[in-house]
């Protein structure tokens, strides 16, 4: 409790109540380390944004956090449970604690919008069909798509698919919701709508949100805490304000979207002329 009080005075916010702890997480594909020793905490009830350029290992990190991809080494704790040690059946209890909004919604194309949202309820609860229907309506209302229940995923737009995906992710009232690139492929208005939804769901359902994105506008709009990755390392971590003021040129280049700088525009190593002429 003393520790908690200390943190209140430091951050001016609630005590850090950590829900997910990541320690020395390493993932290698062959000799290449996509994650090279990540260690960070995710606070309960807050929105944590994980940022980084394309190919920096954001998606890989997300896949490891949800137990879809085995880790090379390191630990991921949900409260005090290390999920890297769990088998598939044991992992199921953790899986029920989170929902995921996938980059393109990942709706099941053979089912209607309503059945997509109902699926986790039908498979994991013993609720009566009437109650399930009611819950589906409630979840769809939350994302503003109640009248679209009977349409097939192919009949709705990309932004709508994401919102249905979100309704499905929160169907079982999870404690944690993961968002994989929530604004990818959306126009600025729809993207803002999705950001609003993320904030609304985080506050009304009291969930912990973990957002993976490279959209700076939306990242700064929704984040309580930010983690910035580059080539398998955490290069900056803190509140949006701290990130903005980070003197690290790589962080500044990323925030301001400059094409050349600490991260060079030209990624090739050898001399252009000698490559063209075929001499080494």
């Amino acid at each position: 409790m003393e520790h908690a009080a200390e943190n209140i005075s430091q951050n001016g916010s609630d005590a850090p109540d950590v829900i997910i702890r990541v320690r020395n997480l390493v993932k290698k594909f062959g000799p290449r380390a996509v994650a090279d020793g990540y260690s960070f905490d995710i606070e309960r009830g807050k929105t944590t944004v994980i940022m980084g350029g394309s190919g920096c290992g954001k998606s890989t990190l997300l896949k490891m956090l949800v137990g879809f991809l085995p880790v090379t080494s390191g630990d991921i704790y949900y409260d005090d449970l290390n999920i890297t040690q769990l088998n598939d059946d044991e992992m199921d209890t953790i899986r029920r604690r989170f929902g995921i909004l996938f980059q393109y919604g990942a709706l099941f194309n053979s089912m209607t919008v309503g059945d997509n949202v109902a699926l986790p309820l039908r498979e994991h609860t013993k609720l009566d069909e009437k109650i399930i229907q009611m819950m589906v309506k409630m979840k769809l209302e939350l994302v503003g798509l109640r009248s679209f229940e009977d349409l097939m995923p192919s009949q709705i737009s990309g932004g709508m698919k994401k919102r249905v995906g979100l309704a499905r992710a929160i169907a079982l009232d999870p404690e944690i919701v993961y968002y994989d690139e929530p604004s990818a492929g959306l126009d600025p208005i729809t993207s803002a709508v999705v950001d609003e939804l993320i904030m609304k769901i985080t506050s009304t359902l009291k969930v912990t949100s973990i957002v993976v994105t490279h959209h700076m506008d939306s990242a700064f709009r929704i984040a309580d805490h930010m983690i910035m990755l580059d080539r398998g390392k955490i290069i900056s971590e803190g509140t949006p304000q701290q990130i903005r003021n980070d003197p690290n040129p790589m962080v500044q280049q990323f925030i301001n979207g400059e094409p050349d700088g600490a991260v060079p525009l030209n990624q090739t190593a050898d001399s252009y002329i000698s490559d063209l002429l075929g001499v080494k």
Partner: peptide
Amino acid sequence: TMVVSEEIMALETMAL
């Protein structure tokens, strides 16, 4: 196609 569009991952992470 379900693998490519992450539907399989969605199934697994829904504990199915």
